[in-house]
Design a protein around this nucleic acid. Sequence first.
DNA 1: CTCAATTTGTTCGTATGTATG
DNA 2: ACATACATACGAACAAATTGA
Lengths: 254, 254
Amino acid sequence: MSKLTSIYDRSRVPLYIQVASVMRQRIDTGHWVEGDKISTLEELEQEFAVARVTIRQAIELLREEGLLNAQQGRGTFVSGKPKHNRWLNLANDFDTMVSSIKDNVLKRVHIEEIAANPDLSEGEGTLADSYVFLRSVQYNDNEPFSVVNLHLARSIFDKAGKQFMSVAALPKIVEMADVTIAHAHQTLTIGVASPETADLLKIGLGEPTADCRLVLVDDSGIAIYVADIHYHKNCFALRNDLLERSGPRRGGAK
Amino acid sequence: MSKLTSIYDRSRVPLYIQVASVMRQRIDTGHWVEGDKISTLEELEQEFAVARVTIRQAIELLREEGLLNAQQGRGTFVSGKPKHNRWLNLANDFDTMVSSIKDNVLKRVHIEEIAANPDLSEGEGTLADSYVFLRSVQYNDNEPFSVVNLHLARSIFDKAGKQFMSVAALPKIVEMADVTIAHAHQTLTIGVASPETADLLKIGLGEPTADCRLVLVDDSGIAIYVADIHYHKNCFALRNDLLERSGPRRGGAK
DNA sequence: CTCAATTTGTTCGTATGTATG
DNA sequence: ACATACATACGAACAAATTGA
């Protein structure tokens, strides 16, 4: 069995899609540059250890995406880069987070006034008496880039009521005079799109998403705000300078 | 056309795998709990709008993974949770990063003393004269969880030579008396496994990975350390408290 | 201009996988 | 379990376009 066939056994995704993924990445990372002539079908057959037709299917996929352009007798050329909207910069301090959310264009798509409690993990505080559930979608250029599933403690929801329908909840909570936020636990993982998420983000079921969970705990240890945010993977990037706060590191420092 | 069929059109992944992904996630998130009897085939058929056999294929997949257990005449039951090794906690300050790397068990799998230059993005400094390329795999419990592709400026490599073969490079660099690190740019995105990465992490080609790029820039603006780290998606999590540095947030604060 | 080499495009037959009802 | 339809993948042969000697 060839090397790739055994990898194929691991993933069960159609081979030509796997091959296309790798090629797409090569273009994306600049390994194959726009205008380049890529390897011949024959070479690709050998490299990936698959049949000619399979390579052609992969190329056809990327042709539809506008990344490749095959010309009979000449070769196959790179004709573009995958579109990325990595304009999202996840915050890693609270103020940046709040101010970046403030300007978001969002659309509430679902509200349940009587909602099941969120599942809290170790260290995420204790449950409030009851929660309201809000779901919204964030857009940029009319393209959806994230879905927010928010469990909001009813006591908080009642303070501002209808305002939560049209505005992001987090900045509103920060403004509340009688609420103290003791912790803001953030957890970032890679997840897969549920039917609802896939539908709202216009991606395939089970495709990867960047999942960010944000839990706000008040001074009595109650989780008043539990958000599960699913980002479209191409819209997600987290950038920071690890030395931003501490300044340059002189040699030999402990 | 049913709702799911149209989602299927977007993803091109076999339908039963998509269905299995959703079910797996339900178990993972605690929506379906161990011991539960899940919906009947008939209900699932309707919910996902697919044929009975397709549901059975999905269940069979999860049965092989030990998550489900179907019993004729009784129903299908949850028999376990997906294994996650989310013990990785990506640092978001430099010292934590360095000290967490120090203890890593790694295996160098590939070294090129004469290597191509890395591709630097805007703001990641300027290229050094030449680079050495090092590839290593990190293990935990004999399971690979990350692949590091490192371009190290030759001037740095020459200072410690063979030591880089067996030890993580970053702590070594920090200890160097005549090297100043001015910036440590970190970028986190979601990527896909290349053939090499898939092979080393034992995952399928094109499966999602958490990609972390770390670029160290010295005081003359040269990128002396350019690492592309690919984490297994189940081993990756980033956790922090956004209020850790600033302390609790009193209500009404601007 | 012709010829040969190179490279993509097309087709056939076969086998297996996926999905429906 | 069965009949049906279509997708995926292989290997091999042949056709058509391009290039350069």
